[in-house]
Design a protein around this nucleic acid. Sequence first.
DNA 1: TTGTAGGCGTTATCAT
DNA 2: ATGATAACGCCTACAA
Lengths: 346, 346
Amino acid sequence: MNIPKEATITDIANTLGISYSTVSRALANHPRISPGTKKKVNDLAGSLGYRPNNHARNLRNKTTHTIGVIVPKLNSLFMSSVIAGMEQVAQEHGYSLLISQSSEKFDLEEQSVKTMYNSRVDGLLVSVSYQTTDLKHFDLLFKKNIPVIFFDRCVANDDNFRIVIDNKKAGYDATTHLIKQGCKRIVHVTANSKLNVYHDRMAGFKTALQEYGLSLPDEQVIFTDLSFESAGKIAQQILAMNPRPDGVFVANDNCAAGCMVALQEAGIMIPDDIAFIGFNNDLVSKVVSPKLSTVNYPGYEMGIITAKNLINQLRGTEMLKIANSIIIRSDLVLRESSKKDHVPAT
Amino acid sequence: MNIPKEATITDIANTLGISYSTVSRALANHPRISPGTKKKVNDLAGSLGYRPNNHARNLRNKTTHTIGVIVPKLNSLFMSSVIAGMEQVAQEHGYSLLISQSSEKFDLEEQSVKTMYNSRVDGLLVSVSYQTTDLKHFDLLFKKNIPVIFFDRCVANDDNFRIVIDNKKAGYDATTHLIKQGCKRIVHVTANSKLNVYHDRMAGFKTALQEYGLSLPDEQVIFTDLSFESAGKIAQQILAMNPRPDGVFVANDNCAAGCMVALQEAGIMIPDDIAFIGFNNDLVSKVVSPKLSTVNYPGYEMGIITAKNLINQLRGTEMLKIANSIIIRSDLVLRESSKKDHVPAT
DNA sequence: TTGTAGGCGTTATCAT
DNA sequence: ATGATAACGCCTACAA
């Protein structure tokens, strides 16, 4: 078990008979180091398998070149695209990503924030958990002026920097679409939470109903955790309603798909009896039968934009105190689940 | 923009009028520091918002308490469960996770390995990409005796430590199930790769066919990237076959679901014309209609076991050179897509 | 039970 | 163009 020795700049300096500050500068491609020494240093470094010690570097520079990422769940097409985008940008700029999932639990999110703080991340990208209602647990970062950017999911009415879609508009468009398909009694299935995404989607939903003169009895808004597993219960609730609704707008695809499956098992025809529209354009929306209409928004792009903004902020390139939100484009994706009186296109 | 000063052990020592080594020891809960000083130190540390500087610590100790994780994709129920399990164990033992997705590309995986290496992770947990055929790119780690554990996906015939399921048995069981349902011409859809998961599942498939005296024309093994997007092409290929197969065993659920959707659009009845079985028990398997039979294995547990093993290895607790693989239990999950002559249970 | 001193690998500020 | 030196914050023999 021989310990393979780790080469340092001192080693390079010694075998080359020069000082280690010269080596350091040569490695950093400092302008006033002779090309000759640069070459010698780089060659030797290569053959020695030298790798810079980031810890020493970070200790010295008080910067870690690490970006923390906290998300509620990793297992959606959307989230993994976001992260892929972030990773690309991070790599391009020499940053690493420290990723953590809160599993929709506030406690775990709080825990993760602490870990990130103790790991001295240069900045943090966050999509908050389902249970999060305020941002006190980020105070340690705020106090130290460590930039935090919230993307996709934020607590409503908060003025931190955020990168989101226009959830209200998307909710409005989805609902309007159902109305135009002839739906009169539309149910909205969402989470009982203060998050922008649910709050705003519902706001859009309500605006649309009002605008078209449709009433909204209390029972037509159903609160749930939006998991696939909970969908069975929602379906029961819908079946029990009298009169039965003719359209459902669910705040995510997983839950929408679960509802559809359960309702169809109970003999409901979709879209003829009840039209459905979901949110996220997740894989399930293309698999469930009939295919689920939904709202699409570009995760990969959102990841890129979010990461770029953070890095700009870290480099002081951008005056971000001015703008405090970026809105990303979203689109309605219409499929069979919401097209009344239409034969599926085959 | 006042810079909030960062408290160090020296600060604590000074305000308390004791030496910083005492503070260091008190913080580390060293046995021979008086409880009184310990309390004073900890209290002050708390009120000062002191956080240990991991970089200084790592520099000193030559250990980062960071575990690298490289996976092909994050967006599956399986992978995100694995990572949740790893995170839990890591946190319990004071480790952080550096996560990266290769997006099934060899280049990105290679890149990630380098990044991990340069970040000086204490160990690495890897599920290799679809394109990976050998492990040369891990040599830098191997040479330095940095432990690497492969989980779920490994290159075949490699003797590194691995934590996997018995893919051959699972493939055998899945195939046998189809045979027992009366299937005579069974197609296997898999990836053209050297990975254990595909290699072994196919081996199990072939063994089962042989055992039951079924022939296997070349065209009955279809190679693809197994993505949902490629499923349409596979469906075309299956439709073009003469005689038409009556059973399909696909090496993952996404692709299986995609095939089913496409075939049903072309008028094929599932399971009556063609029975289907997938692999992974991903969410789509419960959403697609009819619900997809599949092979389930516990991601969360696999994550826990993998992380625990690495940490034990790092602490020298375990003699891992002896064992070189751990097999995790997997089960067949039978649903409607493979039950011939059965009415769906409702 | 506590203090002193040296060093982990870098980079930045001097000086030469 | 290069060298010497100090400092980043922490840990740990060794002393006291």
